[in-house]
Nucleic acid binder design. Sequence first.
DNA 1: GAGACGTGGAT
DNA 2: TATCCAAGTCT
Length: 303
Amino acid sequence: MIMPTQNYEYLHNQLLCWYKASARELPWRNTQDAYHILVSEIMLQQTQVSRVINKYNAFIRQFPNVYSLAKAPSSEVIRAWSGMGYNKRAVNLHKAANIIVTDHNGKVPESMEALLSLPGVGRYTASAISNFAFGFQLPVVDINIKRVLGRVDRGALFDTDKLAWETAKKYLPSKEKTPEWNQSLMDLGAMVCTARNPECESCPLVLNCSASIKFISMKGSKETQVKLANKKNTKFIGSNRYYRGRIIESLRDTTKPIHIDELGKLINPNYSSKGDALWLSDIISGLIKDGLINVQKGMASLP
DNA sequence: GAGACGTGGAT
DNA sequence: TATCCAAGTCT
C-alpha cells in the first residue's frame, strides 16, 4: 500500500515526540564540538553504536582536541582504534586532523566541499557534521534512515541511494528541527524499525507507513522474518581481510618491529616461508599502501 | 559500479 | 554453528 499523500506535519510531530521520550543517551549528542562530532561520525561508519560508545569516550580522553590528534604518531591512533575494525579509518582520521590543523586553522571546516575533501569523509559523514555540528538544513542518509524512509515512503527498500537522498530531503522538517529529526530517524531505525523484526506495534509512524500493514500481517504467520536482500557470503576466516586484521592485531601488541617471516607464523601456524611468502607480501603491500604498517629491512611495525 | 575493507553481537 | 548486520568510503 502506497500512501497517496503524506501528512508531513503529523509525521514530524509523531517522531519528534517519540524521540523526546525514547532518544538514546549518546555522548556525542552532548557536545557542540565539531571535532568530537567528526570523531564520532568516523567511528560510527559501519559500526554499531553500542561498540562505539566506550571507544569514543576513551579516544576523546586520549585526543581531546584536533591538535593532540594531529601531532600524535599514527601508531598511537591505530592502537586507539583497536576493536573497531576498518582500521584505515584511524589513518584517515589522523590525516584529516592534520589537514584541519594545516589548512583550516584547527577548525573543522563548515563547507561541504572542504568536508568532502577530508580523507574518509563521504556524503553521509559530511552531511552529518554539517547538520549536527553546524546546523545546516541537510538530510542525512545512513543505513537506518534508508530503511525507515524506504518503508514509510514506498513500503520497500530504495533501489538507489539517489532516490533515498531525494526522499530524505523531501521529508525534512524546518531548519531548527532538522538535527533532531535526523537523529530521531536513526534511533527509530536502530530500536524499532529494525532490519529483521520491525516492531510496528510500538512505532510512532505506523499510520504514515507504507510497509506497516504488510509487516503486521506477517507477524502471526510463519513468515515472521523480513525478506532480506541477497548478499554474497564468502568465508571470512582465511580471507585476505581476516589476515590483515590479524597482522594489525599482532603489531599492536608490541612496540618492537617483527620480521615478516615471524609475522607469517604468528598469524598462521601453517605458514611456510617458502610457499607462502608471496601470499604474505601481497597482504603486506596492501597494508603499507593503506598507511597501516611500515616495513624496513624485512621488519614490520605500526607507522 | 561492484568489491574491498573488520569486528563482534544478535538471531 | 552459520549467517546477518552495523551512523560508509574508496577505488
